[in-house]
Amino acid sequence: MDYQNRIGSKKGSGGVASESQLNVHRKQRVSRLISSQFDFESDPYVFKNHLGSLECRLCLTTHSSSESYLTHTQGRKHQLNLARRATLDAKQQGGTHQATGTTSVQKKSYVKIGRPGYKVVKIRDVDAMELGLLITIKYPELKQGEEPLYRFMSAYEQSVDTDSQGWQYLVVHGEPYENVAFKIPSTEITRSWGYFDEDLKEYYVQLFFKSPEELT
């Protein structure tokens, strides 16, 4: 990232980058890392049409680039449709098992070792002028071969927080740690994604809100 010719810099040296510029650079870097690891060949829902655009057969949407499709797959609409599809497949497989007399797969069990450490930072997309959050969660003892997962949960899906009007929850799961939930405004989320750094053992979740209002 070139920081030359910026205020506070000397000729021939790197300039001073603002916090928003660093956030843009960090977002682009992690986005490239995710794109390089995403296998489009194994995605059963992606289809390249005659115009060269990518279509999502699950959500019936069209995307001009692989980055746009990747962002869509991390969004709320695609994740909800994946969950519905998985539920439907599970019901169909359950009916097949009952008819053939086979046994179902038992749920995995593990010993929880407590809550992971985390950090929440407010960010802004300088292009779309959208406010968002960057959440970093540390998983130093994550199970080998496992990756954390996240999902959004409405206030109506829980009974712990009674004063939850106008809020929703971001729930992150990583075995063998306890689930962690972040209370966020119930504003529409335009895009979100998660990335696990195996070297640092850190899981990043970034999301942006449609509303331009300041986050509380």
Rank of each mutant, 00 (worst) to 15 (best):
G52E: 09
T187A: 09
L88G: 08
M153I: 13
K112D: 05
A128T: 15
S53F: 07
C56A: 06
W167V: 08
E67C: 05
K77C: 07
A83W: 04
L82E: 08
T216A: 09
G114E: 06
K48H: 10
H25V: 00
R151N: 07
W167F: 14
S66V: 05
Y45H: 14
S42G: 06
T190Q: 03
Q168I: 05
Q144V: 13
H63C: 02
N23M: 05
K119H: 11
T216G: 09
S31C: 06
D43R: 05
L149C: 04
E55H: 04
H78A: 04
R191W: 10
K143P: 00
K112S: 11
G117D: 15
L170N: 00
K143L: 15
P212S: 11
K201H: 14
R32S: 09
E147G: 00
Y169A: 02
T103L: 11
S104F: 10
Q165V: 13
S31K: 07
T96V: 14
H25N: 00
V160M: 07
L22W: 07
G117V: 11
K183G: 03
S159C: 03
T190N: 03
E147P: 00
Q4F: 12
S20C: 09
G12S: 06
E202K: 09
E41P: 00
T162K: 06
R115F: 14
M1T: 13
V205E: 01
T187P: 00
Y169C: 02
T102P: 01
D163W: 10
G8T: 05
K201L: 13
Q92D: 12
C59V: 01
V120P: 03
K138G: 00
E141I: 03
S64L: 13
N49S: 12
F47C: 12
R115L: 13
V16Q: 04
R26L: 11
G94V: 01
Q37Y: 05
T102Q: 12
E175Y: 01
G94Q: 02
T61P: 01
I123H: 00
V120D: 07
E202D: 04
V105R: 11
G52S: 11
D89G: 03
I7G: 06
N179V: 04
K183P: 01
D199T: 08
T71H: 07
H173R: 14
L170P: 01
Y45I: 03
L80F: 08
I135Y: 00
G94T: 02
D39K: 05
L70D: 03
L70G: 07
L51K: 15
L215E: 09
L33H: 04
Q21L: 09
K210F: 07
E198W: 02
E67P: 01
D163L: 14
P44V: 05
L22R: 13
T216H: 07
F38E: 10
G75E: 01
V172P: 00
P185I: 12
V120L: 11
K11W: 13
A83P: 00
N49K: 10
D39F: 01
E175C: 04
R26W: 09
T71F: 07
D39E: 06
Q206S: 15
K107Q: 15
E202S: 04
Y45M: 06
Q79S: 14
V24C: 05
H97K: 15
V16C: 03
Q79W: 04
D89Y: 12
K48T: 14
L142A: 06
R85E: 12
L215I: 15
E157D: 09
E198V: 09
L51V: 09
T162F: 03
Q74W: 08
T102I: 13
N5M: 06
A90N: 09
